[in-house]
């Protein structure tokens, strides 16, 4: 009796979870399937497989059309990679200092770092924009990169500081005794030992930078400089209403590469998230 009850509840649990999982995957499958269909076929039956009416037209008009999506990808990567690299370099030092040194005002600095995660980009955008104008970098990639770096430093510092605090200090101490200086210890011990935290910080910063719309849309007005999210929004607001095929292909072009990368890196992503969030 008990076993039977258990089996039923197990079955129920798996059913609920499977339904939710389908709800998470199916929308993207729908997008992928329909991106290979003629736009009239999407209208008639969006659930069929694109066997009879297989076409690459949507992709062709998305890539070769008036909008240069490949260029937008390139812009996205230039921006997001620069942000990731700058954030990692800066937080390498800040998190090492916060994790390993005792100094005056450390608590205050840590509080500031946490506080800066509370500042939505909206709260600084006007003065920030004026500042970028006076630096003459508004409308350039650098004008997006620098504020994005500032916006991501808090998260990355907290994640890395938490991780470094958990590394035993013995190895570093014996290195100091052998005459190593701080930078050697960082380079040969702390950084290599925090590899997994680095990779998850890198992935999250990359995602947030790549997926950001607000800042990119405000600062980059030249279509040739736009990264992929901003360009897609532009496409949708100009012709989204009429050309469903183009829209489906555009969504697929932005979402599918990220999903593929996600499947390869999911271990790091999920592990890193939990390392950062559960710590505190």
């Amino acid at each position: 009796m008990r076993n039977r009850k258990k089996a039923i509840s197990k079955g129920l649990i798996y059913t609920i979870l499977s339904i939710w999982a389908i709800g998470c995957i199916y929308p993207f499958i729908w997008i992928l399937i329909n991106s290979f269909k003629d736009k009239n076929q999407i209208i008639r039956n969006s659930f069929s497989l694109p066997i009879k009416f297989f076409t690459l037209d949507n992709y062709e008009s998305a890539i070769l059309g008036r909008y240069n999506i490949l260029q937008a990808y390139l812009n996205s990567f230039i921006i997001s990679f620069s942000v990731v690299i700058l954030v990692l370099i800066i937080t390498t030092f800040s998190s090492f200092a916060l994790a390993r040194y005792q100094f005056k005002g450390k608590k205050l600095i840590y509080a500031l770092v946490i506080a800066c995660m509370m500042f939505p980009i909206f709260s600084t955008i006007f003065p920030l924009y004026k500042m970028l104008v006076s630096f003459k970098i508004h409308g350039t990639h650098l004008g997006v990169i620098l504020p994005q770096v500032a916006g991501n430093l808090g998260f990355a510092t907290i994640l890395l500081t938490g991780f470094i605090q958990n590394i035993p200090t013995e190895v570093a101490e014996s290195a100091y005794l052998d005459g190593a200086n701080v930078f050697q210890v960082m380079r040969h011990i702390t950084v290599p030992m925090s590899k997994s935290a680095y990779s998850s910080a890198a992935i999250f910063v990359f995602l947030w930078s790549y997926n950001d719309l607000f800042l990119q849309m405000l600062i980059l007005t030249d279509r040739r400089k736009m990264p992929i999210s901003a360009l897609l929004r532009e496409i949708s607001s100009k012709e989204g209403g009429t050309n469903q095929g183009l829209m489906v292909a555009a969504v697929a072009l932005i979402a599918i590469p990220i999903i593929i990368v996600y499947f390869f890196l999911q271990k790091n992503i999920i592990k890193g998230l939990t390392a950062g969030a559960v710590k505190e």
């Binding site: 969006s46 897609l232 829209m247 979402a255 996600y262 999920i270």
Partner: peptide, 28 residues
């Protein structure tokens, strides 16, 4: 389940918004 349930987070809200616009469309 962990991997699939987490998946929507990695896709940009822009793409999701455009996607839901396609879902909500009256005709198709």
């Amino acid at each position: 389940f962990k991997v699939t349930l987490f998946m929507p987070i990695v896709v940009s809200a822009t793409a999701l918004g455009l996607m839901f616009n396609l879902f909500y469309d009256y005709n198709n």
